[in-house]
Every structure is written in C-alpha cells, then in structure tokens.
Design a protein around this nucleic acid. Structure first.
Length: 420
DNA sequence: TCTGGGGTCCTAGGACCC
DNA sequence: TCTGGGGTCCTAGGACCC
C-alpha cells in the first residue's frame, strides 16, 4: 500500500481533447454535449464564466444571445478514449503504478524518492508537453484525500494546479472550511441526511461517531469516513477488474410509437452490446431489455418495462438480437410513446470456456462469423456489415449534429494541412 | 419539440431449497 | 412469549460516480 496516493485529472478533459486538434477552439468558450446532443457535459472556463452549468439542456441555452460565441461539440468518445491512452502512457513511464479511474482521471502511486511538489509539477508539464492535455494533481495519504486535494487544485487557481494534503494540520484547516458534499462518495442525498444531524462540514463528519455513520450510510459511508481520517481502505487496483456487465442504451431522436421501430432499435442495441462483448472476449448469460416513456412528459404516465433472461453463454450478435427482440416483444404495449430503450448484458464469462449443452449453433462457426464481421467493421468503419434486423433507415436514431472528426483513430478523418 | 450513457455497490423482501 | 437456519436467486430501489 503506497504511503502517498495521487490523483491527476484532465482539466475540462473533453473540451481540451477537442482543442488539441482544432486551434479555432483555443481561448474561446467550448462546450461538449452528451449523446443525443442533450445537455452540457464538459465546459471550458470561458464557458463556465458565461454561466453554462453542468447538465444544462442544450435546447434551453442554445438560443441565449450571450452564448453566441460558444462553440458546441457533440461528444466524440473515440477521440477522448485515445487522448486518455496518451495521458496514461506519459504517466506510466514516470510513476511506479497508475490506476486509470475514469477516462480523464488516474490514481497514482506516489512513493517516489523525490520532493512531491516538484515531482508532480514535472508530471503536469510532461502530460501537457507530450499529450497536450492540461491537468491538475492532488495527493495525500488515501485515495479519498487525494481526490479531495485534486478538487482543491482545480477550484483554487492560486494553488497552481497542485494540492498537497499530506499534512494533518493543513487537512484539518481545509476540513473546517469545506462542506461534506465536496467529498468523493458523498452525494446530495447523503449530504441532506447528514445535515439533518447537524453534520455540515468535513470536520463535522470525521468527528461523528463511526458506528452511527455506518448505520446511517452503510459500509460505504463508513469507509469514506475512515479514509478522510487518514486510514487507507481503498488500495490501488492494478488488476483490471472483470466487469460485471455492459450495456447499450439510447434515448430516441423522437418518440417511438411503432413496434417495427422498437424492434429495429432493440436489435441494433443488442448488436452493439454484443460487439463490445466480443471486443473484450466475453460472453453473456443474462441479457436484459428495458424500454420506457418520457419521464418529463406532462400529462403522460411514466412507464418503465424491463425483462431479463437466462441463456447459454454467447457473444453472437444473432443470438443476442433474437433473445433481446423476443423479450422486447413481450414488453411492448401499443399506444405508449417510448423515449428510450436499452439492452444490458450481465453475468459475463470469458469467451469459449463454457461447455454448451444446448447451443443453437456450432461455437467455432459462430466465432468465425462474428470475427469476420468485426474485422470488416474495424477496417471499413462501424456498421459496414451488420445484421439486417438492426435496420437501414433508423428513423429512431439519436442526434449528433456537431460531431468533430475522429482525428486519431480513423485514417479518413485525419487532420489535413493545406499550404496557401 | 427539446433533459445522456454507462457503470458500481448496497439493501431488502420474497420465492424456493435443503 | 417463544414457531429453524442458512443458502441462492430474483427483483426493485437507492445512491453514487464520471
């Protein structure tokens, strides 16, 4: 267990990634929108200064006059994922161990024989120079403290992008000033519960009786409290955790009212989920389907329908489409206006290891067919070859009107230089 | 007209089994 | 008064995270 944990994260990561390849985005407000161009999920400081908040629905802010200078971008996860790998590479060459936590955050083992402030300053500089991404770094004796330090580095420009919470006295001073809701793992609901007990600041929280906190917030809250007190409960996870499940879920571009459209959408989601499964060499034994109406629609009753099934492990798109469509047909109700649907795959097992008692197709033939389809799609672009059930026109599809090119992962979208 | 997608973990109750 | 104990699976909901 390292004595010091660090957390490094990319500043406005998605926006920074967009800026790397588009100089016109420098020094102007940039906002990256969620899938379906629904709401703001990343904002540069210039955009924050204009009052755009996290999660602001695009349709409510797009028309505002003062937001004219904002450059909007649809989210481009192929680009962001690749930029994240570049950041990881830079770090992996410089610290003993790196644990990627999310696309834009990595925990660091900072047991290095160096002065940490200058070492971390060097890390920031290297990531900026090589991966072109501006970052902040925070560190302390536990992951939770490192995360808090990282947040302070981000929020307090005078810290110069670095924050050290190793010293207990300095920590205590911050704990007095910070609301408990700033802590990683304490969300708004928990903050409300604590407020009712008179626990407002982080200092109040760490002074509270641990038993009472465990009773109120379960083992999860107990762990947060211990971590804030300096007792490390969350080790660096170097083994890539085997994932529990994966999903493909989407809001529709407009309400879906016909079964033929829903069938197509569910087939397309099942196929996409199966592709993700195969990319990780996994198979699923417990697929589920859900569909629901618009929870925001006034005067319409919200309806959420879902169903799961046990099947022989498979990664074959055709099997999973058949199962998903069968379940969806059982859920379908005429007369509802569906806003969203999804396919979730649970109970994942390594591909090709399970004995199949009742397999519908010969496993090697299935694997070969899927491998050929995946290879063609890698080479010629996603969706080049796909099951017919997933639809041609896709009238239900999501919107992505302002998508930037996949500069680093698709040769046809690489940046071009032109001499004038 | 219009509000994302994809994860994790925990708890609790009911059915069922031995 | 008191009515087993322990296990799995399923579903649903809550809460959190990025």
């Amino acid at each position: 267990m390292p004595a010091t944990y660090g957390l490094i994260d990319g500043n406005s990561f998605y926006c920074s990634a967009e800026r790397v390849f588009d100089p016109a985005l420098h020094r102007v407000p940039v906002v990256v929108l969620s899938n379906n161009d629904g709401c703001a999920i990343a904002r540069t400081p210039e955009a924050k200064a204009l009052g755009i908040r996290m999660g602001d629905p695009w349709h409510l802010v797009r028309g505002r006059a003062e937001l004219r200078p904002v450059r909007w971008r649809s989210s481009n996860y192929a680009l962001y994922g690749d930029m994240s790998r570049r950041v990881y590479q830079v770090l992996a060459e410089r610290v003993p161990r790196v644990e990627p936590y999310s696309i834009d955050e990595m925990f660091l083992d900072l047991d290095v024989p160096r002065d940490l402030a200058s070492f971390c300053a060097g890390l920031r500089a290297a990531v900026l120079r090589i991966a072109k991404v501006p970052t902040c770094v925070g560190w302390g004796p536990t992951k939770t403290i490192a995360k808090l330090a990282n947040g302070l580095a981000k929020d307090h420009a005078e810290l110069g992008g670095l924050c050290d919470l190793t010293d207990p006295a300095e920590r205590a001073a911050w704990y007095q000033r910070l609301p408990v809701g700033e802590v990683w793992g304490i969300g708004s609901r928990t903050q409300e519960k604590l407020a009712r007990l008179g626990v407002a600041s982080i200092a109040d929280f760490i002074d509270a009786d641990p038993r009472a906190m465990r009773d109120l917030l379960t083992v999860v809250g107990g762990r947060v409290q211990a971590e804030l007190r300096g007792t490390s409960c969350l080790p660096l996870q170097m083994m890539v955790a085997t994932r529990k499940g994966l999903a493909c879920t989407r809001s529709f571009g407009r309400p879906v009212t016909r079964w033929s459209e829903m069938r197509e959408a569910v087939a397309a989601y099942a196929h996409r989920a199966a592709e993700k499964l195969r990319a990780e060499e996994l198979e699923a034994c417990h697929p589920a389907v859900f569909m629901h109406t618009d929870p925001h629609a006034k005067g319409e009753r919200y309806q959420h329908l879902q169903h799961a099934a046990r099947i022989e492990p498979t990664g074959d798109s055709r099997d999973l489409i058949a199962e998903a469509v069968r379940m969806a047909e059982g859920l379908w109700r005429d007369g509802l206006r569906y806003a969203k649907a999804g396919v979730v795959l649970n109970d994942l097992v390594p591909a090709g290891q399970q004995a199949r008692l009742f397999a519908t197709r010969e496993p090697r033939a299935s694997a070969r067919t899927m491998a050929v389809m995946d290879a063609i799609n890698r080479q010629h672009g996603a969706g080049t070859l796909r099951p017919a059930a997933t639809g041609i026109a896709r009238s239900w599809s999501t919107r992505r009107a302002m998508l930037s090119p996949r500069y680093t992962t698709h040769i046809s979208e690489i940046m071009q230089a032109t001499a004038l």
